[in-house]
């Protein structure tokens, strides 16, 4: 029997050692980098916000599952990741009760009503963030400048409303106004590379997403480097457009996903009503994910193309 290398046998099989828990805690670990950067630039307030949303997200999941008489799965870490991601997408000065509302919506409306982890069509953290943006537009667009704590505009808003660009180095390090975890491109890229190295993130999505934004903004006569570094694009590309549940499973599908999201970002930033379009772009492409999956099913080896 030794010469049959690809023999299919009955169980037991070797387990790869991967589990939802392990993946989620790795993602949470990678998210620590942008979180630390956010706390460094925006102070203790940012840390309190991150803890609030995380606790609220975990509590919401537990309450939902207890009420529905389902097993409580808060220890798989997915609610923790959603909570941290949500906080990283919020302005540092947001009132805490609004952050709690966002967490409840993210987990409740974004995940649990669809049946929990793996069933949700949309990225829960983004559902929470967009809900807050639409519900409390004033508070969700009141940005705080790092260090001195005065209110100010984000680089993208400055660009859109007054045509002012921001220094690349400041954008890269993260010393600008914005959501807690989106400002420091450096921290996000480091965290993202770690996840790519661990194999939990497919490089195709960030590459096609960022590439499309760069190329398209260049074609349309805008500064591609500015558009790559400003706003939530980096955070979105590495941590939210790569969510395993809500993005395509095929390689080609992931590239299509990235390109589509990139087109939406540029269109919203340049021609839309909002200065930033990363959350909307990922949610829109989440909606396309089932179709993309269906269209990019790889052919079985030897299968003849049929019409």
């Amino acid at each position: 029997m030794g010469e049959y290398k690809f023999l299919t046998t009955s169980s037991p099989h070797i387990h790869s050692g991967e589990s939802v828990q392990r993946i989620m805690f790795s993602v949470a670990g990678a998210l620590l980098l942008p979180t630390i950067a956010g706390v460094y630039f925006f102070g203790i307030r940012a840390l309190i916000l991150v803890l609030t949303t995380t606790l609220a997200a975990v509590a919401t999941e537990a309450i939902f599952q207890v009420l529905r008489g389902k097993p409580v799965t808060i220890w798989d870490g997915s609610a923790i990741v959603t909570g941290i991601l949500l906080a990283l997408n919020l302005p540092p000065g947001l009132p805490l009760w609004m952050a709690v509302v966002g967490s409840v919506v993210a987990i409740g409306l974004g995940k649990m009503i669809y049946g929990g982890l793996g069933m949700n069509p949309f990225n829960p953290a983004l559902v929470g963030r967009v809900f807050l943006t639409v519900t409390f537009p004033v508070q969700m667009t009141t940005w705080i400048n790092p260090v001195d704590g005065t209110t100010g505009a984000t680089p993208l808003a400055l660009m859109k409303m007054q045509g002012i660009s921001t220094d690349y180095v400041r954008l890269f390090i993260g010393n600008v106004g914005g959501s807690i975890g989106e400002t420091s491109a450096l921290a996000i890229i480091l965290g993202g590379l770690y996840l790519i190295y661990r194999g939990y993130v497919d490089w195709r999505i960030p590459a096609s997403y960022l590439g499309t934004v760069a190329v398209l903004s260049f074609i349309l006569g805008k500064d591609p480097i500015f558009h790559l570094l400003a706003g939530g694009l980096m955070l979105g590309a590495f941590f939210m457009a790569t969510d395993m549940v809500t993005t395509p499973v095929t390689k080609l599908g992931r590239i299509i996903f990235g390109i589509g999201a990139g087109i939406f970002v540029v269109l919203i930033r340049l021609y839309g009503g909002y200065p930033e379009g990363v959350s909307f772009s990922i949610l829109l492409m989440n909606a396309f994910t089932p179709i993309i999956n269906r269209l990019t099913i790889p052919r079985i080896y030897g299968e003849v193309k049929t019409r």
Binding site: M98, F131, V134, T135, F136, P137, Q139
Partner: peptide, 11 residues
């Protein structure tokens, strides 16, 4: 009191 703008919109 803070107004929940989303409640006035279609969603």
């Amino acid at each position: 009191a803070t107004h929940w703008v989303i409640m006035l919109l279609p969603p």
